[in-house]
Nucleic acid binder design. Structure first.
Lengths: 222, 222
DNA sequence: AATAAAAATTAGCCATGTCTAATTTTTATC
DNA sequence: GATAAAAATTAGACATGGCTAATTTTTATT
């Protein structure tokens, strides 16, 4: 019942993709997400279906079985716990932790996640603001919503990011945006759905629609 | 120049084997150590030779090049640092840490080992008593010698083990032997080179030659 | 409905790192 | 020095997880 690196990465990808869109995941979407070809995706899905970790073919698209979801959540839990260790104990920065955790999440040991969890003081969120599944696999709902869905003129607080790529995180660093930063959407440009956003009550900058869709916020006032 | 899991395991095996015997490592020895066939070993050695990590064929046997040794020491350093974290921070026991560290040692990041080292307070030895290579790759000499080389009737202190298998460590646990325990060799049985050893100044037990060769001690008195 | 575009699927190839089954070379021993 | 045993090597196979290049199926669009 041991899972290979590849298998785990597929399970994780299906998990994240079906979270976002709430629907079954297509071959094409998976292929793009994993940067593999559609052909490769199909053969791996067959393998995972045989292992009863994935349901496929029924209609169009893949989804995780109960067992597959359990496995995926376990990986996500480890990923996020390791990120906390890397950031809080080893002093790695926001942009560095994701890639290291991608490797650490595949280390297998029945008690590792729980020991880490305890050592770290049972953290609820990882450094990017994502909820850490608890020991039973329950994932608390993120209270934040997308910056792109927020109202103009309301004071907002950054609670997380939807994109953990170092490209994006480096951009945020440059803008001095981190978790807890204050934002306010001042204007939406209809032409391309970009926006003018005030950062930490000082400078205002123009950001793309893609940017707005990659930041999680809660509103903190008028 | 990225190394695969297999490559790293070969480098590590050659490193450890050539430490022990101080000589070049034969195919057969490597094969036994890695639990692979001789044929597999040969093809991997060819690959590592092409990458200039290993010298081979010259006479009979393999040895690490400068670059190969550097890579091996890096892996050993990570392995032992992770073992310290697992034991001291995550409260894993002696027998559990080795297998987890076998996985963790292959996580790549240019600064990971150094950050770990700092977080752990620059430990000199891992929980099994093995020296941790420093940031420059220097490995301090173990002060201990083998229990099998010690004199009868002298009080000894356990400073490490030469075998990190859980089989052996579980046996030690059962005997209540750990680092710091007191031992005294009372008698050597000529017939099979086994010995009677007194543990912690209380019970005496009979142990095999293999056992004597797996424990590192220093003498602490008359 | 006809057709173009997109998505899924198949067939077959490739690299990696194993293996088994010879075969050759080396080493030891009488 | 002949020979048996051990060690090294070669040849060829196999599983995994990718790939490319068709081909088929589905979905959209006139």
């Amino acid at each position: 019942m041991t899972r290979t690196l590849s298998e785990e990465n597929y399970l994780k990808a299906i998990f994240h993709l079906s979270r976002n869109s709430k629907e079954k995941v297509s071959i094409t979407t998976l292929a793009a997400s994993l940067e593999n070809t559609a052909a490769s995706v199909i053969s791996m899905l067959r393998k995972l279906t045989a292992k009863e970790l994935v349901d496929y073919d029924k209609q169009k698209g893949a989804s995780l079985t109960r067992a597959g979801e359990k496995a995926a959540i376990d990986i996500v839990r480890k990923h996020r716990l390791w990120e906390v260790l890397l950031a809080e104990k080893l002093e790695f920065s926001w942009e560095e932790i994701h890639d290291i955790a991608e490797q650490l999440e595949h280390v297998h040991h029945p008690e590792l996640a729980d020991r880490l969890d305890k050592f770290l003081g049972f953290p609820q969120f990882d450094p990017h603001g994502h909820p850490i599944p608890d020991i039973k696999g329950n994932i608390s709902q993120v209270s934040g919503k997308l910056l792109s869905d927020s109202t103009i003129g309301i004071e907002l607080e950054v609670v997380g990011v939807k994109d953990s790529s170092s490209m994006f995180l480096n951009y945020l660093k440059q803008l001095d945006i981190k978790i807890g930063s204050k934002l306010m959407v001042e204007q939406i440009i209809e032409f391309d759905q970009s926006a003018i956003v005030k950062i930490n009550n000082s400078s205002s900058i123009s950001v793309s629609r893609k940017f707005l869709e990659s930041i999680l916020i809660i509103s903190t006032g008028s």
